[in-house]
Design a protein around this nucleic acid. Structure first.
Lengths: 263, 263
DNA sequence: CGCTACTTTGAACCCCATCAAAGCTAGTGG
DNA sequence: CCACTAGCTTTGATGGGGTTCAAAGTAGCG
């Protein structure tokens, strides 16, 4: 039964060394995609909109695009033109530091948006890399804002999504500013768990798509510390961990590990 | 001459123990405030708008409000109704953790906006406290979005301001995730310096309105470490520090302390 | 089967937190 | 006017959590 839920939670695993992948030209499908019939409509852009407004979104006729594991959806500094919605797969977004190291600023899964940080200056402030083969909708921002002119509800939705991103980053700041390694990893795992659950996957058993180093970058700790903290949780019988496969054994215990701090 | 620039940079200092201040009802002035004639219009909401759109903003007829040092502009959990623009003074915004400690998420000065995080859920996600006597414009969000319905440019401005907040938090995440104490404080001081400069104050000499503990909370370090790092900078002849009064002696040296890392 | 990328674990070190105490300043009240 | 208090800052001493360095283990792939 657990294997069944696991099956549901995780697509077949293909390990591809990320460096080895050539950055092939991204094939842009000409299939027009309709929000009104999308299975993600309650998580994604149309979330909270009424039927008529969702149908208005259908007018956008934006393209889908497949991104292979390891490929970039966009790079820091590129011109901002699209808001991207993840249809399937997982992304990381990250900034590059002057010395070449990277700071991961978030992981995005189905129904979540990418590229919102580009609005501020017209240039994308971060890069987005697919952590597994993925598919996205590329929504031309110009069209979207034209559409928003005719619907205050749609304006609100866009604003609300941006605000949600601000709130998300708030909590990450809290994490980075005031939590120890165990609290950080517990918070991370509970967050992943919740988001998978909201997408119909198992909340207790899943495959992490990101490496220890990427988790560490996101959580402000070194990959060795991430690994050690996973081991510690396993010894405390909170988790079963096998590389990227995680099973939450004691959800409440995990919540205690981090609930102590958070409001 | 340095004292002259200092004079310009800092209002007269009134030290009031923050705890001692009663939270008196906030007097709401009925003076209508016009964006088109505001001296902050190039930093604040109207930034980037053309004359006709700015005049449209005048239609908002929002109220000003004075906030005394130590008083709250709003509290976490309150209903979201307004976007606040700082006219004068400095604010901190912060989250409260379950155990009572607080995490400072930002400091806001003249022309900067507060309350954007409330859009996501309709409840304000943080609290805002005046660090000195201050004045704000309270812009009813409902009116603002009505107005935005008639101008795509105005919509863009709102979105851009929110996006800017996302980008700001990105860089803070980078700071919290990958910098040591000296880099953090250098980044903080350079940021304050830039923002004061943009407001016509001295970039090299200023009064910090926040305590060591508040700086520490913002930067993810303890107040003692903040104090020690200030002392270290003074010994390295990068700064002259006397409590909250800071003079940047070696700007380039300070930039080197943190430029090493940041793109 | 060897290569590469990633993970795990150990050992030593160091930066920062913690604990403690003293100094400074403004405001209060005798 | 000055002792006293409260709040904030500075500095010292100590210890610990996490980093760093190092090495071995694992898995998938050519």
């Amino acid at each position: 039964m657990q294997t069944a839920t696991l099956r549901a939670a995780t697509a077949p695993i293909r390990i591809v060394p990320r460096q080895a992948l050539a950055e092939a030209p991204a094939p842009t499908a000409t299939i027009t995609t309709l929000c009104s019939t999308c299975h993600l409509k309650d998580l994604c852009l149309p979330c909270g909109l009424t039927g008529t407004d969702v149908q208005r979104l259908d007018g956008l006729k934006f393209a889908r695009r497949r991104i292979k594991e390891g490929q970039a959806l966009y790079h820091e500094g590129e011109k901002f033109q699209f808001i991207y919605a993840v249809r399937s797969g997982t992304f990381k977004s990250h900034l590059t530091l002057k010395d070449g190291r990277e700071q991961v600023t978030g992981f995005q899964m189905a129904g979540e948006l990418l590229g919102l940080d580009g609005l501020a200056s017209g240039q994308l402030a971060s890069s987005a890399i697919a952590l597994e083969d993925a598919e996205i909708c590329a929504i031309p921002y110009a069209h979207l804002s034209e559409l928003a002119a005719s619907s205050t509800d749609l304006q609100h939705v866009i604003s609300r999504l941006m605000s949600r991103e601000i709130v998300r980053e708030h909590s990450l700041m809290m994490l980075l500013g005031s939590m120890n390694a165990e609290e950080r990893l517990a918070a991370f795992l509970l967050n992943i768990s919740q988001r998978l659950k909201a997408r119909g996957y198992s909340a207790s058993e899943f495959h992490l798509r990101m490496s220890r180093a990427e988790i560490g970058s996101y959580l402000g700790m070194k990959l060795e510390t991430v690994s050690r903290t996973f081991s510690a949780f396993q010894h405390q019988r909170l988790l079963d961990v096998d590389k990227k496969h995680v099973r939450i054994v004691d959800l409440e215990g995990l919540q205690r590990a981090f609930d102590l701090r958070v409001h």
